[in-house]
Design a protein around this nucleic acid. Structure first.
Lengths: 140, 140
DNA sequence: TATTGTTGTAACAATAAAGGTTACAACTAT
DNA sequence: ATAGTTGTAACCTTTATTGTTACAACAATA
């Protein structure tokens, strides 16, 4: 199991907007060219980023732009915008309450799962779009 | 996207073995009763745990038993036994090398993805089967 | 040796999600 | 009015998950 490519595509989209919005109109076609993915997919992901308040999109004329400074956009924001699942783990639904383990496993595991997910999210929270952009520019 | 329930089922299996192997023959049917999942699914997951060296399974006579002390089995071991993907994230395959972002995004993101995954795995590594069993016993 | 309860695995099906494509109405600057 | 966009619907294909039945191979034991 893997997270869908929506996360890396969304990050790529935002990097392109941050990089190019001053000089070009960043349309779904433009993005499609850089990412190499169908423009409809781009538009869907762009819609999620827009719902999350990270980007604005110009109706009719076209083009996306950042609604927040790149410093204030983290990988966690991006992740949450495109992955809607509450919990990282799918718990088996009906453990048997007549078994001592079946009866207690949820209360034991739920907290652990939260801890694990938090560790991941905290790491994501520390990485900003502006840092990614700086590193990308260094490598160009 | 979520991880499959194989992870929580595998953990449930190991908890049952640790709890009951002294008093009962822990067969796929017994486990199926506690977990409420088809015995064939149990046998497949049990097979993964066996390949990973965590449990032994008695051919013919039936029954599973731990091959390691519960203190030495971590959630990370269990996770790796049942989730075979190398990387947590699916990266879009063909970013355009003629775009400055497309050309550099992999080298910028690959390290970040590793860091995030490590944070999650480190948390998993800290939780042992024996600790889960203790907490379950407390709650019984 | 025949029986019984297991395991391991194959074969299949149903459902859901991911990823892709075409098509088109609605919108807006020019 | 035109042209380039966006948003979205309607499909399709592929893959993974989860569940199911069936059965050969195995090992204790009656």
């Amino acid at each position: 199991m893997q997270f869908s490519s929506r996360f890396t595509i969304a990050t790529h989209i935002l990097l392109c907007i941050a990089m190019f919005e001053k000089e070009t109109k960043v349309t779904s076609n433009f993005l499609s060219g850089s990412i190499n993915v169908n423009p409809v997919i781009i538009r869907n992901i762009l819609g999620s980023l827009s719902s999350a308040g990270m980007v604005g999109i110009k109706q009719g004329i076209g083009g996306a732009y950042l609604l927040k400074p790149a410093k204030e956009i983290t990988l966690l924001d991006i992740f949450k915008a495109v992955e809607k699942e509450e919990s990282l783990f799918h718990f088996h639904e009906n453990p048997n309450p007549e078994c001592p383990i079946g009866r207690t496993i949820h209360s034991v595991m739920d907290g652990k799962i939260e801890t694990i997910q938090s560790a991941m999210e905290n790491e994501m929270k520390d990485i900003t779009l502006s840092r990614l952009l700086e590193e990308a520019k260094e490598k160009m």
